[in-house]
């Protein structure tokens, strides 16, 4: 347990010193604010850049507040995931490259604490970012448009958090399996986007798949997904997270025997 605390402290210090604890949430907050504001100014923006003939009238119905929160989630699906993947691609792979890993491997190291400490810190930063970003978006939507039911918002945020945890676990697993940080990032992004594409194309044939978590999160803002489908999906998502953590622990152990001094 003491070893775990030490490793956790090391991870915290690393995340603090390379400023990940600050800038990742700030990027999420920025995108959370920009989305409602651009939606609010959409008529003026179209006016100034639209290059429309004189007298053209476009009637844009004001967007529903729920739609804006879903749009913010859409931003996170692309840029948020990219930021998280790039920030944590080197968690294990980078340490192997710069030698920190070798320093750790020569000690009687519990690989469970080693991997879990990384996972906990990365997930904590991910959660902090998503929640502060979504809350900023919620607040701005409330100011500029209407109030979204807060319970619905909480359900939406909680479901989306599960998806972010899934992403973080995948990145850490890839970082432990693949030999360098670039490959880890490429691998996880490829997996995420290819599977999302498959699910988007053929997903109508099944209702339970961890890739539908963001979709179900968005549905919480409207009528809510079918409880049965949702709970099966969430359950599979949680199992997948556990499986990826276990696999990550195993492959960081395997890395130790492959290290060259």
């Amino acid at each position: 347990m003491t070893q775990f605390n030490v490793l956790l402290k090391k991870e915290w210090r690393e995340n603090f010193r390379n400023y990940k604890v600050f800038w990742i949430p700030i990027v999420f907050i920025l995108f959370g604010i920009i989305e409602p504001v651009t939606n609010y100014f959409m008529p003026q923006i179209l006016d100034s850049v639209g290059n429309l003939p004189d007298g053209a009238v476009i009637e844009i119905p004001p967007p529903e507040p729920e739609e804006i929160l879903v749009a913010v989630m859409g931003q996170y699906q692309l840029i948020g995931i990219l930021v998280l993947v790039l920030a944590y691609m080197g968690s294990v792979a980078g340490e192997r490259k710069n030698g920190t890993a070798t320093l750790l491997y020569v000690r009687p190291l519990s690989y469970r604490s080693y991997f879990l400490s990384k996972w906990i810190l990365a997930s904590a930063v991910g959660m902090l970012s998503v929640w502060s970003g979504l809350l900023a978006a919620y607040y701005y939507t409330f100011l500029l448009f209407e109030r979204v039911d807060f319970t619905k918002f909480l359900k939406f945020g909680a479901t989306y958090s599960l998806w972010i945890l899934l992403i973080v676990s995948l990145v850490l697993l890839m970082s432990a399996v693949l030999p360098n940080a670039g490959l880890a990032a490429a691998g996880s992004l490829l997996l995420i986007f290819v599977f999302q594409l498959i699910d988007g194309l053929l997903g109508t044939y099944w209702t339970v798949s961890p890739l539908k978590i963001p979709g179900y999160a968005a549905q919480w803002l409207l009528d809510g997904p079918k409880p049965e489908d949702f709970w099966w999906t969430a359950g599979i998502g949680i199992l997948l997270i556990f499986a990826m953590i276990l696999a990550g622990i195993r492959s960081s152990k395997a890395n130790a025997s492959k290290t060259k001094v």
């Binding site: 930021v83 920030a87 980078g94």
Partner: peptide
């Protein structure tokens, strides 16, 4: 922050 600082 991601690439330029070499902190991965």
């Amino acid at each position: 922050l991601v690439i330029g600082r070499r902190n991965y």
